[in-house]
Design a binder for these strands. Structure first.
Lengths: 338, 338
DNA sequence: CTGAAAGCGCTTACAG
DNA sequence: CTGAAAGCGCTTACAG
């Protein structure tokens, strides 16, 4: 590895080789029209021969735009950052923008530190990823460039927050079960202190009400986002309410645990009990036995949308408020007609 | 969001407020010793009052060092990039370096494109993440700054490649099973065209040979990295070789599938059959029924090590060749004495 | 100890 | 159409 940084080729080198001034070389390379065709040809050729790559730092110093955005995540290791990050990266790439990545790991100190760092690096804007749909303090006050909040809502309504639409996702799941003729529907989900969990419960209730149904047990089973909890909850539920014919689960891990326990108990899926998961985490949902019908949050698209809004803001067209992006139901074998 | 970029405060502003020249202000802020204490105090105060943040671009233009490294991944969505990325980010953060992230998505064109982009942004060095342990063409020829390859080996021995030690991982797993008194050990793993899969098989065989044992069925079962394959393979294996008392699996998903099928078949884990997974993917391994003994690749540490080597190279102390980092056995409930 | 000057690599009015 | 000059924000010899 490691040859030392070969002093890279500079515009001066290109100009010299083409026999013009740096000013002219610059204009030729930037396709400004005040350059003679023949001159431009010579400059382009020289640049090509030298593999000239303009120094983006110098350019940024002049223009004040670095074509770089800061991506501040809260928990990269979590489930949701990566797809969003991919969407962001994708959308930025096609615009020749790059992303400086920082993971604050849920630490407020580190978050401020990274904001300063990224500002010192003159990023043109920020995308701030949350790790849950919960509301969090705005950071925009410290940031003199456009900011978009994604997957975590800022508490300042003047900020723009882009969220997955939990009510929509729960509605899709519940309507699907109801339309299949399921009448005895239970809900096993994560901790009650997650807003996403509560929002989905509210939406689930709305749909059931509308269909003249009520939730089995009257209340959802709040617990953890794990298979283990799914197994445990399924066992409890089935022993108290053997008439259950559908379980809507708060994520695919819970759903996987539920599915395994139902099999252990001799219940057929979906014939006896339909199961719907949430998240469409491929390794769990598609590889479950049977594969899970689940709600996809369209996270990658969420990232792309964030970039779109950020660009708009950079062009002087900022938005604000909360935008909730619809979910998508992915139907697999774990649900079927009653 | 989106106040337009407020023209940020510059060293000139600080100098003016402190009543000194920019040269002196610069020296004061950079703790060079040729500044009178009182002058320094005034400058620091002015900087503080103005929330001055030096423009890293300008600094980089002078020093030729941007304190930025380019992280080129091949498949960010895959399992292995994230922990490594976290390790890198962690190690860089403590050195005030930032990371520009690009995901080539396994596309060679995109990879070259990103290399050019990152070079134009004057990164001080590269970390190139592979998505499997397989050997791949070196990219160093195009890169005039230090490069470290991680989790994917460069075909140029002059490059430095940092890999997880598959032979070590398989050895740990197999020795563990043998030491528990298991004698009829089978192996279910992923596709044979993965070098990692083949390397582990070789190591597994070595350990079995040394213990006077041979692999059940004579050959490992190569297949996919999925639960589904684990289920299918377990069923086949158990019907042909009911004497099996241990199964070493190529990853935690396969192991999960195996565990579920063993339960369906009425085999007790670990009493009748011990299971070892691979990867220590927490959501699968720790949440399996029972929790899986598995091999941890220490990926985060791999990322940290990569940064260490990159810094050494930046300091003119490059290394080369292949370094394999040891794995770690995580013992949970899926293995026990025979 | 302080500051004027040169320069990092580039772009952009402005003369010619 | 071309090039000399100024300047982006900063640092660093070099005089004083």
């Amino acid at each position: 590895m490691a040859r030392q940084r070969s002093q890279s080729v500079t515009l001066t080198d290109v100009a010299r080789r083409a026999g013009v001034s740096v000013a002219t070389a610059s204009k030729a390379l930037n396709a400004r029209d005040e350059v003679a065709p023949e001159t431009r040809r010579r400059v382009l050729q020289a640049a090509d021969e030298l593999s000239f790559q303009p120094n983006v730092l110098a350019r940024g110093l002049i223009s004040g735009r670095t074509r770089t955005i800061g991506l501040l995540t809260d928990e990269l290791a979590g489930r949701f950052s990566i797809p969003i990050l991919l969407g962001v990266e994708n959308a930025l790439g096609s615009e020749q923008m790059s992303v400086l990545l920082c993971d604050a790991r849920g630490d407020a100190i580190r978050r401020r530190h990274y904001i300063r760092t990224l500002l010192a690096r003159q990023v043109d804007g920020f995308i701030i990823l949350g790790d849950s749909n919960d509301v969090r303090p705005s950071l925009t006050g410290d940031i003199p460039v456009p900011v978009v909040y994604v997957y975590g809502e800022s508490d300042d309504p003047n900020d723009l927050s882009l969220l997955a639409d939990d009510a929509d996702g729960a509605r899709l799941a519940t309507e699907h079960l109801v339309s299949l003729g399921r009448r005895n529907i239970a809900h096993i989900t994560g901790p009650e202190n997650y807003r996403a969990a509560r929002d989905r419960v509210a939406s689930l209730r709305d749909v059931l009400d509308g269909a003249g149904l009520s939730l089995i047990g009257g209340e959802p089973l709040y617990g953890e986002w794990s298979q283990r909890w799914g197994r445990h909850a399924a066992r409890m539920l089935l022993s108290s309410y053997p008439e259950i014919d559908a379980i809507f689960c708060g994520n695919d891990q819970i759903a996987t645990g539920v599915a395994n326990t139902l099999r252990d108990l001799g219940r057929r899926i979906p014939d006896d009990v339909s199961i719907v998961g949430y998240d469409n985490w491929h390794e769990f949902a598609a590889d479950c036995q049977p594969p899970l019908t689940t709600v996809d949050l369209n996270l990658q698209q969420l990232g792309e949308t964030a970039v779109k809004h950020l660009f708009a803001a950079l062009d002087g067209q900022p938005s604000s408020g909360v935008i909730r992006q619809p979910c998508r139901l992915v139907v697999r074998d774990s649900t079927g007609p009653a």
